[in-house]
Structure formats: C-alpha cells, structure tokens
Computed example of a mutant assay.
Amino acid sequence: MTRPPLSVLDLVPVSAGSDVRAALEATYAAVRLAEESGYHRYWFAEHHNSPTFASSATSLLIEHALAMTSTLRIGSGGVMLPNHAPLTIAEQFGTLVQLHGDRVDLGLGRAPGTDPMTARLLRRGASDAQSFADQIFELQAWFGSGDSPRGVSSIVAAGTEVPIWVLGSTVNGASIAGQLGLPFAVASHFAPDELYEALSVYRHAFSTESPTARRETPYAMVGVSVLVADTDAEAEFQYSTHVQMSIGNATGERQPLQPPRADLPHDAGWRAAQGMLTCRAVGSPATVRRVLDELVAATAADELIVVSYAHDPQVRLRSLQLLSELWM
C-alpha cells in the first residue's frame, strides 16, 4: 500500500539529570537522522516557562536545522501567532527562506503555549478567530508582494511565499483552517477527543474562495505519539516516560522527562493521561505499522506527524530509525 508521508514534531524535551544544551544536541541528532531516513518535515513547537521543553525560540531552532540539512522541510508546529507581532514573524520566516531556500513551513496556532503570566510577559495579543484570519491574510501579503493592506512593506519577506498551515485540536480550529483554504495539522497527539469530528469539519468547510486559500483541495496532517522498540514490552516500558510527562501536564506538576518505570500507579493523574494519549502507536515494528495503518485508514490522513519522548535520547533515535524502516 502507498502510505502518506511521515514527519517529526519536536519540542526539545529536557531529560531529568541533563540540561538544555544536551537536549538541543539530542534534537539536532534527530534532525540529522530524519533527513538521512527520508522523513518529509521536521517541525518545532513553541513553548515557554516549562521545565520539560526548551523549544522557546522557534525561529532560531528552525534556522539551525535548515543550516545542517539540504532536503528536509523545516518549520514550526507551531508559532503561536498571538504571542508575536505578525510583521516580526513575516521578517523572520522570510529571512529563513532567503538564507536557505524553499524548505520552510509556517504552522500557526492560537493557543498561548504557556501560562497566563508568561503570556502577558510575551505581550500576547488577540486570539479570536477573526483576528487570527486577518493576521494570516497580512502575513500572506508580506510573503507575496511584500506590501501589507496597511501599506507596510517587508523586503526580506517579499516573494518568499512561505506556506502557512493552521494548527488546532478542535472543531473550531478545523473550521478556521477550512474556511481559510489552508492545510490543517491536528494536534491529536495530545488532544485526540475531537480528531474525527475536526477532520470532518475541516473537509466540509474547506473553501477555495477565501483570499487566503492556497490549495485546491483539503490537506490534513494527523499528530500521533509514537515509540518503537524491538518488542512491545520494551516499547511500553520506555513509553512510560511519555505517560509520566502527560500526568504532569494533567496535574500541573510539570518536570523534566523522567526515567521509565514499570510501576506507575493507576490513579486519577494516570487516567487523565490515558485520555490524552489515545492517538498513539507504541510497540514493536509490526505493532506500530498495524496501528498506524489503521489510523490512516480511519482518518484518511494526507500526512502523519509523530512526536516521541524518551528519557534516553538514544531510545528516541532508535525509535525514529525503526519507524522509518517500517513505514517508508
């Protein structure tokens, strides 16, 4: 069977007992492997004020990844647009294209990617659907002619035509993506509850009439958490690191990635984490291939984007390698 392209989402996770520099080194080892193994894209997500993730300066992470690759598409999954002045994003991503050519994606979300206090420090602006759509329209103008509807020009963004994606996990985000005629990335790897409804809404709402539309047909990317190991038992054991991280997110007790453990208590935090992790493929290569094939059949996904967490970076690299071998 023909399988859809496979991409990677990275939040630069920091492991307990390690530090940010080591997390960055592990991320760029994964970038090298992704290019060598035939992955389609490598995206970085924006997060702030978290002991778990070091993916705060998204455009800087992207630039370094572009500089060390030649074929892999690199982008944001995503930039939380209300945290930034749109002109700044246009100039950052336009400059990336000027330096590295047409391999840059701009995935945009509306969530803060942080707590309320940090959002205020970021000078977060309006995040309603209309403001979001207006800002995308203005970004596309800068990436096109270089002139916004308000008469402000950007010479570095002009003509770069950076592809814009809408990110979301709900039917609201799906509706926005469809009405704007843009590709849609579903954050089902951590918020799976509305996955199927969101995909249906996106495809039904998709319009080529919007001034922001850049596609003739819908294009949906589905997020999935993945851990591949030699056996199902080993994969489940290593995946307990991801489960512990999700428990921390559910309870508000966030911390660096913890070592795997086989004795996690099945308490309220564990149950909440299980609800966040239903879109997952964990196991041996045969198991993961079967689960991903079933996910593609159920969603008609045009592309899959995987997120993988492991306390030991070598476990993550091994998972990405095994995944590429079973899928491509």
Rank of each mutant, 00 (worst) to 15 (best):
M1D: 14
L6Y: 02
V12I: 14
V12L: 11
V20S: 09
V20E: 14
R21F: 12
T27P: 02
Y28H: 11
A29V: 03
R32P: 01
S37I: 06
F44Y: 10
A45D: 03
H48D: 09
A57I: 12
E63P: 04
E63D: 15
H64R: 15
S70R: 15
G75T: 07
G77P: 05
V79D: 02
N83K: 09
H84A: 05
H84T: 03
A85G: 11
L87Q: 07
L87H: 10
T88D: 13
E91R: 07
T95I: 02
Q98N: 08
G101T: 04
G107M: 04
R110T: 14
T114G: 09
T118H: 06
L122S: 05
L122Q: 12
R124K: 10
R124N: 05
A129M: 07
D134G: 13
Q135Y: 05
E138Y: 04
L139A: 07
R150W: 13
R150P: 06
I155V: 15
G159Q: 03
P163L: 12
T170R: 07
T170L: 03
G173A: 13
A177V: 09
L180F: 08
P183H: 05
V186E: 02
A187H: 00
L195F: 09
L195E: 05
Y196F: 15
E197G: 06
E197C: 02
A198W: 01
V201T: 09
F206S: 05
S207K: 11
T208G: 09
R214N: 08
P218E: 04
M221N: 01
G223V: 04
V226H: 05
V228H: 06
D230F: 09
E234F: 07
E234M: 14
F237L: 13
H242K: 04
I247K: 02
G248P: 01
G252H: 14
R254I: 10
G269N: 02
A273N: 01
Q274G: 13
A281R: 01
D293Q: 15
A298C: 13
D312V: 11
R318C: 00
R318F: 00
L326N: 05
